[in-house]
């Protein structure tokens, strides 16, 4: 088996809130192979974005944030690096796309300036070379009249187009791993489909790996190779995309999949999971999903082990009652 390109080991992140330490994520683990897409799914506040941010070393190094574990890129632990060393990786080998295309571009700089900047910084290109590459990139993300668009400002672009520009910026230096933090959440469905299609196509071309964060199971089904389901800062199920949709194990995953409205079922009300995600400070001891679980039993007061599904090497879940 080949070595994973990117690897997160026992990543735990805690914040100090009102003098009390709260754990935002607990022992998150995942491996990412070359040309593989991993989706991290879960409700708001379950620790998806925090995980992605710490993968790029974007969490501020402050006294009230405590990070444990390892984030390994090609054998280098990114958590040990200084800000300056990290800047050599960010935007070059590791890149990120953000959720809000409307606010992720600087309104006072032209789109061209923003695309070429990382080329000038990381690849030490000349301005002319960078311009050429920039226009090529705009063509690649299918923006019509790239040459003309290159010198326009972000307000002259629509939401979907801006997200394409963001993708172009993120891909400028040909990253090995691309992190996409809910790249399609702010877009309407047709544009969403276009953007996902584009991402898949680009991934095939460039052989990069991708970590996509989303709460949309539809997105997961269309792009993922592997899926990580998170709840309350823990990974509760972890499997290949096919296995997860065919045979989900954890009650939370099942409930999530049940909550997707389906055209073949006639229903009056949308299915939902009762209750709310507990706050970071009020996490139940034992199984974190126990407050909302249908199958809850006495055993759930203890933290469940990570179980492996029989016959499926890479399918793990965290539950007592399956």
């Amino acid at each position: 088996m080949t070595e994973p390109v990117f690897c997160v080991k026992d990543l735990s992140i805690s914040f100090k809130l009102n003098g009390k330490w709260c754990q935002a994520t607990q022992n998150v683990n995942f491996d990412l192979m070359e040309n593989e897409t991993l989706c991290i799914v879960g409700e708001s506040g379950c620790g998806k974005s925090i995980t992605a941010m710490s993968c790029l070393g974007l969490l501020p190094k402050k006294k009230n944030i405590h990070i444990e574990g390892q984030v390994l890129y090609k054998g280098v632990n990114l958590l040990d690096l200084t800000e300056k060393e990290l800047n050599d990786y960010r935007g070059d080998d590791l890149s990120m796309i953000f959720q809000e295309p409307m606010t992720s571009l600087n309104p006072v700089l032209t789109v061209g300036e923003q695309i070429t900047e990382s080329l000038l910084v990381h690849k030490s290109m000349t301005k002319a070379q960078a311009r050429e590459t920039g226009i090529e990139l705009l063509n690649k993300v299918k923006i019509p009249e790239a040459e003309k668009r290159f010198s326009q400002y972000p307000h002259q672009f629509s939401g979907g187009m801006r997200q394409r520009v963001m993708i172009a910026i993120a891909l400028a230096c040909k990253p090995t791993v691309l992190f996409a933090d809910e790249p399609t959440t702010a877009l309407d469905v047709t544009i969403q489909a276009q953007v996902l299609h584009l991402l898949k196509e680009l991934r095939r071309e460039t052989k990069m790996s991708m970590v996509m964060i989303t709460h949309d199971m539809g997105v997961v089904a269309s792009v993922a190779d592997k899926v990580l389901v998170m709840y309350g800062g823990q990974v509760i199920e972890n499997s290949s995309c096919k296995d997860l949709f065919e045979a989900p194990n954890h009650p939370y995953t099942k409930a999530l999949l049940n909550a997707i409205p389906r055209p073949d079922r006639h229903i009056d009300h949308l299915t939902s999971i009762p209750g709310q995600v507990p706050t970071l400070a009020g996490m139940p001891s034992g199984c974190r999903f126990s407050t909302r679980c249908e199958l809850v039993s006495d055993q759930c007061a203890m933290t469940p082990d990570v179980n492996t599904v029989a016959g499926q090497q890479s399918h793990h879940y965290r539950c007592w009652n399956v």
């Binding site: 974007l58 960010r90 953000f98 959720q99 992720s104 571009l105 990382s118 910026i169």
Partner: peptide, 25 residues
């Protein structure tokens, strides 16, 4: 703003962010 956060993710130095991204604003 998110576009400044994006600058961190792209590995730009503090001085670069101040001069090229904040100053024009």
């Amino acid at each position: 703003r998110e576009y400044i956060e994006a600058c961190y993710a792209l590995g730009y130095s503090d001085i670069r962010i101040m001069v090229f991204h904040i100053l024009p604003n």
